[in-house]
Nucleic acid binder design. Structure first.
Lengths: 129, 129
DNA sequence: ATAAATATAGTAATTGTTACTATTATTAAA
DNA sequence: TTTAATAATAGTAACAATTACTATATTTAT
């Protein structure tokens, strides 16, 4: 029994997140979604983003560079954060999940997940300089 | 020419950080350092932690679980974050720096650094439950 | 339709952090 | 060893990201 009720705001938040690949912040989503729902509250955006990520329908990304980002792609992949334009990009690379097994070898705790972030200057910013 | 002047507060912050291995937050350092410098300001702690990490003398850790942590061990290693007690632990594992080369292969930007965090339940919390 | 429960908008509060400012400490040079 | 220049400090205010509160509105099972 999931005491969860439908809301068009939540649906719209998830839909928008699925349509973009720039890993937006809560505020970016808020700004954009106001075109469809001019009265939506920023709190509603935050609440639903938290809810959706607890449900596993989206991923929350802590980049260490500004506010949290969100990603509708929940398949395992890694990110790059540009310290110049603060863009968050998907990294194209092979599976590295063996680092988890590596880590588990000498560890008495339970590893549930891991995150890998790369930092530097993105291709765009690199050209401009 | 480094327009940088000595300060006993900064020295004490670094010294304390070197003595502990719990990757404290700015506030944890502030609380503890007030025993030696009762008038030190939280802003001074934040300012010096930022300065020291810009100088590369310490590392700032963004765990995605509460406030930033700091680490006097600047050698390459990875961390575990317990979602129960919020402890941040050093992971004992072999060098995984080849994930950086992996990432560079299909990437036109410049990768300067990366961070790997593992999440779950630490050994202590695991026992208790 | 009704009732129970969840979600919302709007706002206030909280947390982590940075900015400001007048005073103090450090440092290099006279 | 004073002086003068500059950086650092304490204390406080401001800020940004996020969460909590509350009265109203929506959803949903009956």
């Amino acid at each position: 029994m999931s005491n969860l009720k439908y809301s068009r705001q939540r649906e719209s938040i998830k839909k928008q997140l699925m349509q973009r690949n720039d890993h937006p912040t809560a505020d970016m989503i808020y700004t954009d979604i106001r075109k469809e729902y001019p009265n939506i509250s920023l709190g509603t955006v935050y609440r639903n983003l938290s809810l959706l990520s607890e449900l596993g329908e989206i991923k929350r990304l802590a980049t260490g560079d500004g506010p949290d980002r969100f990603d509708a792609d929940v398949s395992p992949h890694n990110h790059f954060v540009c310290r110049k334009c603060h863009a968050v990009l998907d990294m194209e690379m092979d599976d590295i999940s063996e680092i988890k097994e590596q880590a588990e070898r000498n560890f008495e705790g339970l590893i549930e997940s891991y995150s890998v972030n790369f930092y530097g200057i993105c291709g765009n910013c690199r050209q401009k300089s």
